[in-house]
Design a protein around this nucleic acid. Structure first.
Length: 520
DNA sequence: TCCGGGTTGTAAGG
DNA sequence: CCTTACAACCCGGA
């Protein structure tokens, strides 16, 4: 006598009902369906996940619960380490199927491997479809000869050989099997508050999570088809903050509140309708492909989130300068354009891509010469769209550690913002202390005569810091340091320089002249 | 071995 | 709006 089919649908990312193949697998013949999200203490630390992103997640869970309830089900939000909790639930609920969306990040991969093994030991069938990315990154890499492509062009070529991504999966039925009462066994199952989770700060971001808002935002952004087909990322205004120059779908894509395949399908339809459209890499569709690119490289590169032991990352002897790092993180560099961006990060958890470039270049090769890993950590904590693959990839890009090597192209912390926003509206909004400065001085307030500083009630060095470094001189010195780092064996990621005979292969990792480590 | 391209540099000059 | 010099990177293709 066979058991009733009972499915545990484990949500992690993919916090949506549309284009959710794991949900459809779970529904296939199931008499009972248990939709579960597990709040893992690994993530629930303010030093790892900031208030704004956690709030975004909680809103997304709330919305998912509402949508499930509208279909006669509900979301069981449980707490604990999934590796410990899920096997208990398999037994308690007599689970026969475990369904969850594939995840390519290292923590998730090792966690999922453990859960899968435990499920199989409990004779639970595991279904793990790919729906967070457009393609199965493993298949892409296999097709590429076992290695991820390291340039966007090469990635485009690979994609072209595969064809269009799969269309979104069918919508789930209007009615889902109810969750049996007593299922929780006395455990709390509601979506907790920030305070419940030990977070004291109030969220400050204007962006709200959830599939409902994601779909509305996408519809809103795609409604102006001319805007869609004329989109060119580098032409956007990084200083636009009332109406951002991009879609701000990134936090929804991060949590899977929106399906990349749905977004792609809609973009594709609009492009088909209007043949005169921009192209990747700058087009809107190109942006989705950048995401796919970094997911593919990130999933198939060892130590992708570190310099050491990372075969695609140049080994650069960054300065260990806590003072500089803290000033940067706390918006106290004395450069208003940089500090305003860091304030937008701290308050909204989102900045325009080019604004991210400005501060990433400033922290690393441009000005402070601090490791990209430090900046990555800050972004990872404070961004509402903080996404492991994309964040690490872009930090390596901007620090000229991988993908990009024109280190002599340095963003100016003074003129880059000025060309978009000469009046400094963005700075005035995020750094109110500088609000009254004349436009002439807003990007360089230290150049204002003391009489002006007094008149606007902001003394530089007292009410707002002096610049911690002099851009004009230090960026040139840093270009020279980068050149030296490249010359002295940082190597080229895809063609590592050969080991010199007189240099031991096991040179200490801190040596300036070290060789890039090969992954062999 | 050379040449052209590389999502998104700057400053100066038209 | 455009081009060019700056000083110069890696990579892929011819």
């Amino acid at each position: 006598m066979g058991r009733d089919k009972a499915a545990l649908l484990w949500f992690r990312k993919g916090l949506r009902l549309h284009d959710n193949p794991a949900l459809l697998e779970a529904l296939d013949g199931a008499v009972r369906l248990y939709p579960v999200f597990v709040l893992d203490p690994y993530f629930l630390k303010p030093e790892r996940v900031g208030t704004n992103r956690l709030q975004f997640l909680l809103e997304s869970l709330q919305d998912l619960d509402s949508s499930l309830r509208a279909r006669g089900s509900q979301l069981l939000v449980l707490r604990g380490n999934p590796v410990d909790l899920l096997p208990v639930l398999f037994k308690e609920w007599s689970i026969t199927q475990l369904c969850f969306e594939a995840d390519t990040e290292p923590y998730a991969k090792q966690r999922d491997a453990q859960v899968r093994a435990l499920a199989e030991a409990a004779v639970v069938q595991v279904h793990c479809p790919v729906s967070h990315t457009l393609y199965d990154t493993g298949e892409l890499v296999q097709r590429n000869g076992g290695k991820p492509p390291l340039t966007y062009k090469a990635f485009e070529k690979l994609i072209a050989s595969v064809g269009l991504p799969a269309p979104p999966a069918a919508d789930p039925p209007a009615s889902l099997p109810p969750v049996p009462s007593q299922a929780a066994g006395g455990r709390p199952t509601h979506v907790p508050s920030l305070k419940d989770l030990g977070y004291q700060d109030e969220p400050t971001t204007v962006f709200k999570g959830g599939e409902t808002r994601a779909l509305a935002r996408m519809a809103d952004q795609l409604a102006d088809k001319n805007w869609v087909v004329q989109f060119e990322k580098p032409k956007g205004d990084p200083a636009a903050f009332l109406k951002p120059a991009t879609t701000v779908l990134s936090p929804y894509l991060k949590f899977g509140c929106i399906s990349p395949r749905l977004f792609f399908a809609q973009l594709h339809a609009i492009e088909a309708e209007k043949p005169k459209h921009t192209l990747p890499p700058v087009s809107l569709r190109g942006q989705l492909m950048w995401r796919e690119f970094f997911y593919t490289v990130g999933a198939h590169t060892p130590n992708f989130d570190r310099m050491e032991g990372n075969p695609i990352c140049r080994q650069i002897p960054w300065d260990d300068n806590e003072e500089f790092y803290n000033a940067w993180e706390n918006a106290r560099t004395g450069y208003p354009w940089i500090d305003a961006i860091m304030m937008q990060l701290r308050t909204q958890g989102w900045m325009h891509h080019l604004a991210r470039h400005s501060v990433a270049c400033f922290l690393t090769r441009g000005n402070l010469y601090v490791s990209w890993e430090k900046g990555r950590d800050t972004f990872d904590r404070l961004l509402i769209d903080g996404d492991w693959s994309i964040n690490n990839g872009n930090w390596m890009w901007l620090s000229a550690s991988a993908f990009f090597s024109q280190y002599f192209r340095v963003y100016s912390p003074i003129t880059f913002g000025k060309k978009y926003d000469p009046e400094g509206h963005y700075i005035r909004h995020f750094l109110p202390v500088l609000k009254e400065f004349p436009a002439k001085y807003i990007y360089e307030p230290w150049t204002a005569p003391l009489s002006v500083q007094k008149a606007v009630d902001c003394i530089i060095g007292t009410n707002y810091p002096r610049p911690i470094v002099e851009h004009a001189t230090i960026h040139k010195a840093n270009i020279a340091r980068m050149k030296q780092a490249y010359d002295s064996g940082a190597g080229s990621p895809s063609h590592p320089s050969p080991q010199r005979a007189n240099e031991p292969a096991s040179a200490p990792a801190t040596s300036a002249g070290q060789k890039r480590r090969r992954s062999s």
